[in-house]
């Protein structure tokens, strides 16, 4: 019974001669095509989980900085995340600039993190596990370096948003932004 369902030269004779090589090749080729097919079929499913076009379309906003007085800070929402905009005073700028880069965990000069020294703009999400650090209000705890303090696991950031102490591995992220006029920025 079983033998008649196979073409001649394969089936029971597969173990000998050329037939075995050809059969092995066919198995491998079929398997390879199957894997490629399964991966191609899986792609749209996985890709559908990534940000959709409307989510991406909300990716840039304009912020007016004029009402923010020196020493004040505001929080704006960008891509569902808080962005800290702090109008730094001379002392804070001085603190950020005079730090020895060798002491930093994620060494970046203050100049590389700002476009204008008085405006520090960073994503307000702790690089440890994503909490929002405290320090936007003058009454908040600002940590040992007078920037921000994350209450979740105790990370301290300085006045340039750089990690100084605690478990976070990196500085607060500087988002992509540009000054569209002296007192306006566009985020994203």
């Amino acid at each position: 019974m079983a033998q008649t369902t196979h073409p001649p030269g394969t089936g029971g004779h597969a173990a000998s001669g050329d037939g075995s090589n050809r059969r092995d090749f066919l198995y491998l080729a079929t398997g390879a095509v199957g894997v490629v097919g399964a991966a191609s079929a899986a792609w749209p499913f996985i890709s559908s989980m990534n940000p959709a076009a409307d989510t991406l379309a909300l990716a840039s906003i304009d912020v007016d900085l004029a009402p923010v007085a020196e020493g004040q800070a505001i929080t704006v929402t960008w891509r569902g995340k808080p962005v800290f905009v702090r109008h730094r005073n001379a002392k804070e700028i001085e603190q950020a600039k005079t730090v020895n880069l060798g002491d930093l965990r994620d060494p970046v000069a203050d100049e590389a993190r700002v476009k204008k020294p008085e405006w520090l703009i960073v994503v307000g999400i702790c690089t440890h596990l994503g909490c929002v650090p405290l320090g936007q209000k003058v009454t908040d705890p600002r940590g040992d370096f007078e920037g921000w303090f994350c209450p979740c696991h105790g990370s301290h950031y300085d006045t340039a948003g750089r990690i100084r102490k605690g478990p976070a591995p990196a500085n607060l992220v500087v988002p992509t932004y540009a000054f569209t006029s002296d007192t306006k920025i566009r985020l994203g």
């Binding site: 989980m49 990534n50 940000p51 569902g80 999400i125 596990l129 909490c131």
Partner: peptide, 26 residues
Amino acid sequence: TVITNLFSAFPIVGDPIVTLLWGGFS
């Protein structure tokens, strides 16, 4: 937020995985 951010700890693949889990930026 905290649990999905755990995956961002992995180098290189971490951030794309987190974006994939979120389907957005947060």
